[in-house]
Amino acid sequence: MRRYEPILALVLAAAMITAAIMAPWLRFVLTIALAKGIAVVGILLLLRAGQVSFGHALYVAFGAYVVAFLAPRLNDAVLLLAAAAVGAGILGLLIGLFVTRYRQIFFGMLNLAMSMVFYSLLEKLYHITHGSDGIRVEVMPVAGQALDRVAYEWSIFGIALALAFTVGLLVRLYLSSPMGEALAGIKTRETRLEFMGVPARGVLLSAYVMSAMLGGIGGAIIAMTSRHVTPLLAYWTSSGELVFIAILGGAGGVLGPFLGAAAFELVRIYAAASFADAWQLILGSVLLLVILFAPGGLWGMAARLLGKGGTR
């Protein structure tokens, strides 16, 4: 199945570009989907180690607020993306030093606690964060080029797509490397790793920092696309959404998060438009159907259709 991944990625990218051209309003939806897909790749890394973070929206929100705070001084999308990634990575390292001491439900809930602390700070420190009013993000130059609104939106879409490809490729290589395979070893035989001279906690911490950086990148793209950041980005339902997308897309390959994010955003948009009061019911039903009939998620379904088990 792995050998079909690049082809499927190109097909998915072509479909996204075509959809964005034919229906310009979808450009916004697909950019957000790509941003969430990048963040969910971070969730996938942790799932590979058998750990679920119920608080990763913390890093998405952090990346978004880095853009909102720094945009007046560092007024360039590329620089702000780099700043969000590095900032989220540093925050991930600090928090990771603590949370990677724990496993399973403790790991998940500590991440949730951290994200809710951050949410509360964003809400309460009104003079700095503007509380629940949030902060508006203006259209900004991209790589030094001042752009009109449409060109800017296309640029952010293009950057999101390019980053999705780059992240997918790098994470794919990482998961096949000794470091990535050791990460998977944490899920099944962590003790063995220690008796092989491999520091399991160090392996998990490095994956955690990477996942935080991916969250930060995703959050920065969301801020640049929606151009308004609020504390809701860090709320626990936002973290749940990331886990939801990870399960929907499937954790067997790096395309899963992007399939899941695209499906999630499209189902949400269409469900909200058609059944304004019941869109959450529809989303929940979709997830239930996936869990019951396609436990490997959309990626697992694709693998089965192509005739390979392919997931681990």
Binding site: L173, S177, P178, E181, K187, L193, G197
Partner: peptide, 27 residues
């Protein structure tokens, strides 16, 4: 490592002698 093949198990042990910190080269 029960989700890995036997060969991958052994290869990971071999790789661990080098410290496993190369994140992009394949196991």
């Amino acid at each position: 490592f029960i989700e890995h093949t036997v060969e991958q198990n052994i290869a990971l042990a071999v790789a661990s002698r080098d410290g496993i910190w190369s994140p992009l080269a394949p196991l």
